[in-house]
Design a protein around this nucleic acid. Structure first.
Lengths: 227, 227
DNA sequence: TTTACATCCCGACTTTTGTCGGATTTTTGG
DNA sequence: CCAAAAATCCGACAAAAGTCGGGATGTAAA
């Protein structure tokens, strides 16, 4: 699964966030990037670490989270293949605001700050790419914070269902269990379980081990509004 | 109060986020920037607007917020003189994720995207400044989201007290009323009022119209931990 | 000054969220 | 395949947050 046999240069050209850079710039990055593979549940870095590499997720799936002293977690976002993360640590010289953990086996490139700053200095469009990436994160965090504050658990769950559904069906993957989902929604498994039960009893959804089926889109939307 | 009589150029040189740029670049920005003054409670822009100017707050105080259909507000952050905002709208071509409202009379510079992109293209350190600004916002939002999810209202209030206090005293400004504070903490005035009452009864703080005094720092810290 | 309006305060109550014990069921590792 | 660990489910309960009515106080405009 390690891509070390393929030329690094070719890999870098396929990084979404570097699209448009010329071969020389890419070669410079390629020379300095490091490759790492993380097993499921492995910690990529901890909240509070001073980690100055920029990360690029080649394959796999991660979660970014904060946790409370009592062990409860708030998942801030899931990180999917093709995304970069730790812009804060890499570019702003601050400690990581969140912990990153692998949900599946994941392969990442580590790009050292030095190389990155060089490229940004020479190729402003790379800076614009990074700015756009950070803007996406800001938008996501604004939505998360306001939803946590202004919506009920039920409304947040319904919203997630409607977003994730592909034609009224949400397939359950390995990491889409109630524990992870609850941490994402900012609650605990028991409460989420109760919500699912109530929506099922109301005839709005149908859930089994494999998938969740949306039975009444309008009803769900209506119910999410009053909450 | 309008700075139009002072040369724009001089103003721009004093923008923190442009420090280090050469006079020509500043002159270009100066030529294209617009000046606006907003009265207290005036809306600078609405969530969902496509507003492509970058804003610089020259003087005054703003809040950035999201509001629910029922009127409840979640304040995301306060914006103080010298800060820039709306990087998302200006640089990522997305609609504003939040509404901005003036708490006091406020004077702002509007810098059009075009001019900004030009400067970023020519001066990479300007891009780095903006990236650092956005990193600050991400850090703030991560803290807000996780606090909303993992801490009680009381713990959030105590945290805010301890942060704001200058030598055990927090002066109450015009906008530091319980309504604004509650919106900042992600709750409602009644609940905040109750928290203040309980902390007062427990002998940990002392609050009157003018100021809040911290009586027992250790006690507050301890109480914030269990919550 | 006087009225109108916003703020705040408080107790009683409701809703939402979280906790706990204990019973199943499912998944994982050997 | 089996045993241990993890996840789920559920009812009863506890805690936190929010709502409501109503009164007191303060502030700003007429």
């Amino acid at each position: 699964m390690t891509p070390s046999n393929a030329p690094l240069l070719k890999r870098l050209q396929s990084f979404d966030f570097l699209r448009g850079l010329d071969p020389q710039a890419l070669a410079r990055l390629a020379a300095s990037a490091t490759w790492k593979v993380f097993a499921p549940n492995a910690v990529i870095f901890w909240e509070g670490d001073a980690e100055s590499n920029l990360y690029y997720l080649q394959y796999g799936l991660l979660k970014a989270l904060r946790s409370a002293p009592d062990g409860r977690e708030q998942v801030l976002r899931f990180i999917q293949a093709g995304e970069i993360f730790n812009e804060v640590g890499a570019l702003a010289n601050r400690t990581n605001p969140a912990t990153a953990i692998a949900l599946e086996e994941s392969g990442v490139w580590l790009i050292p700050r030095r190389a990155l700053e060089e490229v940004i200095g020479a190729y402003p469009q790379a800076a614009m790419q990074i700015i756009e990436n950070m803007a996406d994160k800001i938008v996501g965090l604004v939505a998360l914070a306001s939803d946590l504050s202004l919506k009920t658990v039920e409304a947040r769950y319904i919203q997630l269902l409607l977003e994730q559904a592909e034609g009224d069906v949400i397939e359950r993957r390995r990491w889409t269990n109630q524990t992870e989902l609850a941490a994402r929604l900012g609650t605990v498994p028991d409460v989420l379980s109760r919500v699912v039960r109530e929506l099922t009893k109301a005839g709005l959804i149908e859930a089994d081990k494999q998938r969740i089926r949306i039975l009444d889109r309008a009803g769900l939307t209506e119910r999410a509004r009053n909450g």
